[in-house]
Design a protein around this nucleic acid. Structure first.
Length: 479
RNA sequence: GGGCCGUUAGCUCAAUUGGCAGAGCAGCCGGCUUUUAACCGGCGAGUUCAGGGUUCGAGUCCCUGACGGCCCA
């Protein structure tokens, strides 16, 4: 690899392959740079070594963008750059399109998302960000594996969208003649597995939420969720902090990161902020007293919030918190004591049944982690989910659907447990100073390209015979 | 859904009040034996996002649409 050449002593035989990214001729000597997964390395072709014929044939056979293989010997140039002096040179495959500008790379945001390969090959910071993402995820896996968690996979195509408050995507199963929902959360399946004896499990996988496109939302995003029997939410508070610090130490080598100019210190203590106290301090609205929809709606309206779309008490609480408290939570902190209405799957506090045994980790105004002691009482669970069904019937389309099998699993008995969800995309964006979540996803969802470009693509698809390619495959999938 | 901004050569970007659409890189030709975004000389390169309108004349002004970005809901 390129990296190996950088550390090899002069005289070392070398054999490398990669994409030719720079190529310049100086009379009888040609220099180029080859790029591979480890970085770049310089190569050279010398007329004196190769003879006139070979020299000319080789240097004129390649241009920037081609993939080449080089065999030779490592030496150091006058300017001190380690270089492979070629004794053999092969063009492995040609590029027929010009590469992006060798200095500026790809600046157009749309091109970077739609044709990520160009972004990756031309912009090193993009390559580094996706490498970091991969290392974060593997460090998380190792941390959980070492804590005796079992990695499992649960359905993405589900009969009921559950485990979160969000609108799902709907898709059609042709043979069954039924609609399925792309999961919005794996939560209820993971709990069913805990009931089935695997009492420490986790899943890292894609969730889908039918929301608008903006810098802080993805339609498909990667979530880590784990469940541990016999833990409560406080166990998860200390455990997740250890995990975050392990990722920072081992992947980034620092506990401080700078996000858009703001220094975030994960190494300091994470203060515990009480949800209802914070709301009361910031707005004067005490959620321990204001417990009905109409009164809270009035209070929110007085504060100047747009309450026209709020459909439930929980929706208003969420709106109030998100508009007032959350933007001020910059340094990592634990937010605790959420009102019981917010999460129908979380356990009530024993001493105060109006609050949940729950916490979130908030950093830079973003919720990175949500966790709670799980509700394992099938009677309370049924009541709480039926309340969701009532809200849905009243027109709130971001409520949770009731899954009979989930409650039945609970009726067979579930151990007390605490689960935790961590948004991988947000976490990686924070750690890599990515201005939008689309920068940490290789191929973010985009509106289907229309116009001449799409027309020509459709035409070429029609010409391709025998591949079974349906014309609509290039466009927006049917729903 | 609303507001604002953007879209010009393969890439990065210019183009004054509405007056011949340009540069650098990339490409092609030539020069140059230790370069570093190499350099020097020459050449070719356009549906100015699409469609319509105003005008003697539109990249530029007006309208509609597509895609993207930012902000708001």
């Amino acid at each position: 690899m390129a990296r190996d050449v950088q550390t090899a002593p002069d005289g070392t035989p070398a054999r490398i392959a990669g994409r030719l990214v720079l190529w310049r001729r100086m009379g009888g000597l040609v220099f180029g740079h080859i790029q591979d997964r480890s970085g770049r390395v310089q190569i050279s072709l010398a007329k004196n070594d190769l003879g006139e014929e070979t020299f000319k044939a080789w240097h004129s056979s390649a241009k920037v963008g081609d993939f080449v293989g080089v065999t030779g010997t490592v030496y150091t140039t006058r300017r001190g750059e380690r270089t492979v002096g070629a004794s053999d040179f092969t063009v492995l495959n040609k590029a027929v399109r010009a590469l992006p500008d060798k200095w500026h790379g790809i600046a157009d945001v749309e091109t970077r998302y739609r044709r990520r390969y160009l972004d990756l090959l031309a912009n090193p910071e993009s390559r580094e960000r996706f490498q970091a993402r991969s290392r974060v995820i593997s460090r998380i896996r190792r941390f959980l594996d070492e804590a005796d968690f079992l990695e499992i996979e649960t359905p993405i195509l589900t009969e009921a969208a559950s485990g979160a408050a969000a609108r799902p995507f709907v898709t059609r199963h042709n043979a069954l003649g039924e609609d399925f929902y792309l999961r919005i959360s794996p939560e209820t399946y993971l709990k069913r597995v805990v009931a089935g004896s695997f009492d420490r499990v986790y899943e890292i996988g894609r969730n889908f939420r039918n929301e608008g496109i903006d810098p802080s939302h993805l339609q498909e995003f990667t979530m880590l969720e784990w469940y541990a029997a016999y833990w409560d939410y406080r166990d998860n508070m200390s455990f997740v902090r250890e995990l975050v610090l392990a990722v920072l130490d081992d992947v980034f080598g620092t506990r401080c990161v700078t996000y858009e100019g703001v220094k975030l210190d994960f190494g300091a203590d994470w203060p515990v902020v009480d949800y209802r106290e914070a709301v009361a301090q910031r707005t004067g609205v005490d959620l321990r007293v204001v417990r009905d929809f109409e009164t809270l709606k009035e209070k929110c309206a007085q504060l100047g919030l747009d309450v026209t779309k709020a459909a439930s008490y929980a929706g208003l609480v969420d709106l109030l918190y998100k508009k007032t408290v959350r933007p001020e939570l910059i340094q990592p902190c634990f937010l605790v004591g959420h009102p019981v209405e917010l999460v129908p799957l979380a356990r009530r506090n024993d001493d105060d049944p109006t609050r949940l045994d729950m916490f979130q980790v908030v950093v830079n105004g973003w919720e990175i982690v949500k966790a709670y002691s799980e509700l394992v009482d099938p009677v309370d669970q049924r009541v709480r989910l039926e309340e969701q069904a009532d809200l849905r019937a009243a027109g709130d389309d971001e409520t949770m659907m009731l899954e009979e099998d989930f409650i039945e699993a609970m009726e067979y008995g579930m151990p007390p447990m605490s689960g935790l969800g961590l948004g991988i995309d947000r976490f990686v964006a924070l750690l890599t100073d990515a201005p939008t979540l689309r920068d940490v996803v290789l191929f973010p969802s985009m509106r289907g390209a229309k116009g001449p470009e799409a027309d020509s693509r459709a035409a070429s698809t029609d010409e391709g015979e025998g591949e079974g390619t349906r014309p609509e495959a290039a466009g927006v999938p049917d729903i």
